[in-house]
Write a protein that binds this DNA or RNA. Sequence first.
RNA 1: CGGGGCGUAGCGCAGCCUGGUAGCGCAUCUGAUUUGGGAUCAGAAGGUCGCACGUUCGAAUCGUGUCGCCCCGACCA
Length: 579
Amino acid sequence: MRRSQFFISTLKEAPSDAEIVSHQLMLRAGLIKRLAGGIYTWMPLGLRVLRKVETIIREEMNRSGAVELLMPAVIPAELWQETGRWQAYGPELLRLKDRHQRDFVIGPTHEEVITDVVRREVKSYRQLPLHLYQIQTKFRDEIRPRFGVMRGREFVMKDGYSFHASFADLEREYRVMYDTYGRIFSRLGLGFRAVAADTGAIGGTGSHEFHVLADSGEDALAIGTGSDYACNVELAEALPPTEKRAAAAQALEKVATPQRTRCEDVAELLQLPLTRTVKAIAIMAGGEAAPPSFVLLLLRGDHILNEIKTAKLPGLEAAPFRFATDAEVEEFLGCKPGYIGPVGADRARVRLIADRAVATMSDFVCGANEEGAHLAGVNWGRDLPEPDLVADIRNVVAGDPSPDGKGTLEIRRGIEVGHIFQLRTRYSEKMSCSFLDENGKSRVMEMGCYGIGVTRIVGAAIEQGFDERGIVFPLAIAPFAVAIAPMGYAKNATVKKAADALYEELRQAGIDVLLDDTSERPGVMFADLELIGIPHRIVVGERGLAEGKVEYKGRRDAEAQMVAAEQILAFLRKRLCED
RNA sequence: CGGGGCGUAGCGCAGCCUGGUAGCGCAUCUGAUUUGGGAUCAGAAGGUCGCACGUUCGAAUCGUGUCGCCCCGACCA
């Protein structure tokens, strides 16, 4: 591609509303342009990157035996009503009416459509298994779109759905996809981890997320140092402490703590480590239907509540809980928030759930249920009855023992770029997607689904590859593999001839090359080529040509090197293979 | 959904407090000189100051409303 015939528009300064580096660089490099919140145009340069990502995904999906199709983005509401998701999905689902006032949705995901396709087309076990996928634009009306293409409302997704005659066959395909995803992200040149996303009934194999590791990631991951254990912090188990509860050594004592409502403040006042304090979080369980019950959750002062694990506890799993209002706290504990605690609570009305760590604490500090006061030297059994339930309700922290018993955990941040999931019969049952087995008996199909955030991958790749000059793309997804930067293209006939000849030579060799024939000043040219992240650069100048040489510089190299002009193709081929 | 902030040229910003002909840098266009790391000089084009209503002789500036965008919070006991 000749730059004069292409379209590249770069910026020196990033728009001020771009927060993270990938968003800033994508705007500066002119990969995307914002049209509305979370909605972007992919400019020609960005589209080249996106297409390369798609191509790798497509090649590996096809290689795994999946078959591509393309479903509509606009879906009749009936299908969504059939599975109940018309009601359940909430405001993220963009709904619209056609001219006949019929309801439609813009598809945020396509389980309903694919299941409808398959139930009409597939009747026999002989047609199974079947794995269909598409690469398509989705729309989710996110509460808060941000970070450019990382959390856009409109985005491109690869979504695949597999159909099976048995659970065992679903498990087989799931493993195939697990490996396929690993190959895809490796080929894309990304540093990633597959993490368990569900430890539920299916025994820990039911769902995996694929995360690109980056400090700006929105998800916290618990990663084992002594094994390949990896789990989303949302689900990672905090093991019970190994040490037993120590015997009470201190007397119960009320201490004045005016204006000290947070554990940090109380610990500071009493000159105690935060780990000796207990915080109480008041929630209302049972949802809005029945009269909700009051529950006090107890956590060590330095720990953080894990709402996902908490919501699965006995008595809380039926309906979503919510945090209690100030008035409810006063009603049940007779005290303002900030000084509440478990001691003296009316246990007929207040259910106590203690984190495993709290259950083994002794001589701890907690709110006194009296404004401006806390209790110190508190001990289970002596000062208050044992908790109604001891459970794992906190987020794991770095240094916690790994749940698999090997080593400890570290916390890394990740960007979720892929998710594989065993749907089982969740959709096939509701939509009567069935087949006749070998015995002529009708059975419901087992389903799996497999997603990759195609547009998000571009942002994630930049989060992993950038420096002070701009983007450092992996070769596999760079908009161009090689750039030729002639010095004085318009003025110097020798340079022009050499640059044109080299351009043709590389093109003939099948190398994806950009010739910067704009005659910009060298500094401008170099700055642009570095900003947009082209991995390899060749400078053709009069000085080098006089010695029969051109200059080569890799995007990550500190120094350029001179290469004989007649050897540059072989030299580049070698470089391109190394990447 | 709650809190905060911001809307002035393609991008980054000043002007607003104290109302009086809309500015700066980058980018763009013309010409000249430059040409191996974001050139220099001279000239030019580009904005109904988000939108609406109000106050006023007069509004980018003051008031009310509205729309959009961004950030933070939703872990608070």
